[in-house]
């Protein structure tokens, strides 16, 4: 099946077995970790996108990033919600009470917002990855995961349309804008590669047909990125050196600062109704 966003074939889960309503107990730990990585990525991107809300460089993009922020936070809530159904605390408690070493996001998503060019590039790189992953997850043997992926991918398509339109408009225009976009891409690239760092136990989930192999998605994503950015006149770095560790809970100081802000008030009284 052709992926409408990337033009590349989607990667189907490894096996073709009957849909699972409940995940096998021996895979529960790995599944929760995988979902946490998905949730944490979206949570942080939503938080960062909302740093443009009310502060956007033009009104139209202020509004666009606010919409994407709400979408990403909504997705995070769905992934935390699936974990909640597997016995974890409520989405609020997962997002607002966990310390940095317990976060499994790729470091790309925790980096400071940066300028508008950096936000646009980060969003686009992530959305291309996310759509690819969601397309593959629609074939998950664990039905709740397949259902959620089906629901979420529509929104990611709108994000891609937005990113593509602005990227091409800006990169094909003045040197000033193209230079800022290229600088952002160069800086973010090693972090973006690490979107595909697998969580511990991913291989078992792949074997059970619950998730696609990150290593199989990565080259498809990379090809799509190269096509899209080069069409806009930007050069994708050749490097394969990824800043990994995020999926194992290793993070930079940006995440600690972000969480101190995001969780501070909630943690001032986690038992209170806010």
């Amino acid at each position: 099946m052709a992926n409408p966003a990337t033009g590349a074939a989607t990667v189907a889960p490894a096996t073709d077995r009957t849909a699972l309503d409940t995940p096998p107990p021996e895979l529960l730990g790995a599944l929760k970790r995988y979902l946490l990585a998905l949730a944490d990525d979206e949570m942080l991107l939503g938080h960062r996108d909302a740093e443009w809300t009310g502060l956007g460089p033009i009104l139209e993009e202020d509004i666009a990033f606010s919409s994407m922020a709400q979408d990403e936070l909504g997705h995070a809530k769905i992934w935390y919600g699936l974990r909640h159904e597997l016995g974890e605390p409520s989405p609020d408690r997962q997002a607002f009470l966990r310390d940095a070493p317990d976060w499994l996001n790729a470091r790309l998503l925790e980096l400071d917002r940066g300028d508008y060019a950096a936000s646009l590039v980060r969003q686009y790189l992530f959305d291309l990855a996310e759509l690819l992953r969601l397309e593959a997850l629609t074939g998950s043997a664990w039905k709740p995961l397949a259902d959620a992926a089906l629901k979420l991918r529509q929104e990611e398509k709108y994000h891609l349309l937005h990113g593509q339109a602005y990227l091409e408009r800006l990169a094909k225009g003045a040197d000033e804008a193209r230079d800022l976009l290229q600088a952002a891409l160069d800086r973010l690239w090693p972090y973006a590669l690490a979107i595909w760092e697998p969580v511990e136990g991913e291989a078992d989930l792949v074997a059970a047909g619950i998730v696609p192999a990150s290593a199989a998605l990565a080259p498809v994503w990379r090809a799509a990125v190269v096509t899209r950015f080069e069409r806009a006149g930007l050069t994708v770095p050749l490097s394969h050196d990824a800043v990994t560790g995020g999926r194992r809970g290793e993070h930079g100081p940006e995440l600690v600062t972000l969480l101190a802000a995001m969780q501070g008030l909630y943690r001032s009284d986690p038992e209170a109704d806010w």
Partner: peptide, 22 residues
């Protein structure tokens, strides 16, 4: 917005400020 306690408040505040800009 960065400090809003919990999903509900965070998302509602983003939506609200987005409305103001709109």
């Amino acid at each position: 917005i960065p400090y809003a306690p919990g999903f509900k408040r965070k998302m509602a505040l983003i939506a609200k400020v987005q409305d103001e800009v709109g």
